[in-house]
Design a protein around this nucleic acid. Sequence first.
RNA 1: GCCAGAGUGGCGGAAUGGCAUACGCGACGGAUUCAAAAUCCGUUGAGCUUCGGCUCGUAAGGGUUCAAGUCCCUUCUCUGGCACCA
Length: 819
Amino acid sequence: MKYGPQKIEKKWQKKWQQSGIYNTSDNVDKPNYYCLDMFPYPSGSGLHVGHWRGYVLSDVWARYKMLQGYNLLHPMGWDSFGLPAENDAIKKGIHPRINTKKNIDGIRAQLKEIGAMYDWSREINTSSPEYYKWTQWIFLQMFKKGLAYRKMMPINWCPECKTGLANEEVIGGKCERCNTDVTKKDMLQWMLKITSYADRLLYDLEKLAWPTKVKTMQSNWIGRSEGSEIVFKLLAPDGKEFPLNVFTTRPDTLFGATYVVLAPEHDLVMKITDKEHLNDVKKYIEAAREESDMERTSETKDKTGVFTGAFAINPVNSEKIPVWIGDYVLVSYGTGAIMCVPAHDERDFVFAAKFNLPVREVITSGDSKKDSSGNLTEAYIEAGEMVNSERFNGISSEEGKNRIVEWLAGKKLAEKTVKYKLRDWIFSRQRYWGEPIPIIICEKCGEVPVPEDQLPVLLPEIENYKPSGTGESPLAVIPEFVNTKCPKCEGPAKRETNTMPQWAGSSWYFLRYPEPSLETKPFNKEQLSHWMPVDCYVGGIEHAILHLLYARFFTKVLYDCGFLDFDEPFKKLFNQGMVCKYSEKSGKLEKMSKSKGNVVSPDGLVERYGADAVRLYELFIGPPELDSEWSDRGIEGVYKFLRRLWDWTISSNEKISSSESQDFTRQLHILIKNVSERLEGFRFNTAISAFMEFINFAFSENMKNETLKLESVGKVIILISPFAPHLAEELWEKTGHKDSVFKASWPVYDEKLTEVENIEVPVQVNGKLRATLEVIKSITEEDIIKLALEKENIKKFTDEKTIFKKIYIPGKIVNIVVK
RNA sequence: GCCAGAGUGGCGGAAUGGCAUACGCGACGGAUUCAAAAUCCGUUGAGCUUCGGCUCGUAAGGGUUCAAGUCCCUUCUCUGGCACCA
């Protein structure tokens, strides 16, 4: 009987579906385990072998947990609202609703090929009204708490996608979706106050069993910075005075401030600029607006700026210093204004050099770099001793930080503050395919939430779904949608026509799976407490900031509202590496993608080798967390292994007996040990190596005529079942078992049975291998060293030398040190 | 520039401080075959060899140790993230 994966895989996939073996039930007498894949957006180009990797990995893990006796939740769904789905529809000229459905059907079929144990009865879809009703509901809870607000502001605008974007969606100045340069546009925007969660989002990272890389990325993104706000006095040319707050992390350098720079967009700029400089300032502001963020914040760019004609008074010494504007100061960070200490800040140093502004050293150190006449040749930014700072002279810069702020604070001219790089989340999209924001704008009552019993606000069916590019959503031209009554005053009012971003639905979908068809609530708090947080979350590193930060934020908000009793969604996170392949187009090894023309489709491979072989190769290719290179030949090796395992099991049927050799028992227990330990450590590639070694042993000459216990053969089948579930089920049945192999339990090994009587011990002289000894395990140090010194090749290296150390690490090694 | 991670045969990769290169691919030799594919067996880091072995070898250099791919320091290269955030 030959291994024929095509037939048995179809057979078992059908059986699994019929028996519902993977459908999760509540209230069973087992501990719960929630294993979650990042759900995909329904792309039009289908799955390639790179997509398989994460799904295979989580499936192996889920099946292993099931065999360990857990009640498993392993669901799947569709992130079907938003840019990716909509752009695909526009490209094909098919209405997003129809196209999305078509794509979902395609990917679902492809996912089923993997043979994963998804509970398909819990499938969810973020673009279905039953689901997005609750996305809207969550938005309203945020609105009620003041966490969702509308504001006119210059936002990131993608001219290609014709929509505003969140900061997180701008990667290196380009749109995350289409790689187009992002520009600025003033727009009235819905914002989510994620900044008020900055501290908790940062500190709670500590609680998470996540890769440090992701934690570091999030913590850098949040960008907490402790410093102080210092109040300068601004003197306008007409004699008016304004307080000017600047943010600095170096109040110790305050005596070295020789000028002040405001962001071009700063409110005070037009109030303080004098007539003489007005033209230049206006021109400069205009030019800064035109520039993309990328151009503006590029570090290689020359520093630019203009003088306003106004002066500021430094609160520490009442010195009058010039006020400039410059686009290297960002209006959205800190206070949008900085004090400049060219002697101790690299950027200020460059700016001062260019515009010939004075440099005054106030921190001294032997490490400062100076020319022959004692002038600084570059900014000295480290700590040191304070000079030129009046009464603070001679104290350390570290101490000075506090002393200066305390002193000024007494005069209400300084205050310690914390600033973040994290900005509020721009939440409106000027696009059709998303959740309508459930707000009604009434002239009298302002922004009025749609009453909860009127949710969902349905996305209307429209012909022209393409983005307009005007800054309005395509919904804005549908009078039946826009015109409505104010829920408060009953007067005529208009609906908000912006939609939510792609990330809205995915920020809480993991809360929906435990009871996906619940109609009265988004989720059931009591029941959720038995499943959440997710025990193991598997997905790509590309979501390190976007999705994973947003999902944490949503969870914390819902926790604060009392809807949840946990405040972090994902306990453990695993990022699988990307699958790469040489691309003819770029001539480089690159991540598989359609545009690079280097995708490998699993379809043909499944047909030829079977899904189990593809699963195995996805794991065998390399360590799961690292990127790996796809080799078309590599799959042959694992396929050969599966066939050998099949042949061995089938032929073992004729050798079944009540006894087996000690050798075999030992190898079996070593296998159980290795596979268990390597699975626990997520080292799937070496777990498979362990199997290959076992099967090589099982086929070795001296095993040919040995008898086997049926129970032992069964254990091997259970061990392989998470990796090759179809093959395992078939072999399980063929060896006389009635129920599914996944109803069995994971074998345990006996450490004693893995050990041998006789061991080989390497013998070194001066750390170099010179011989090996075969000895009984319990040999004493004295005996083994005696044996070692008798060895011919050891004598060669020890004769006529003085032995001054003899080392025996039991069971490991002998080392004789000579001189 | 800053912060992570990585660098091991022809290739993918393996090694709780204890025999470097497990396992797989490829290559070579053999068996089987009219022949090929498939399959099976053997060899496969480099150099030297009296065939017993010896020398070198984990990006480069140094250090700790009886013993270093593994720990420490310096440097180089690659990948990813951040990048005028005051």
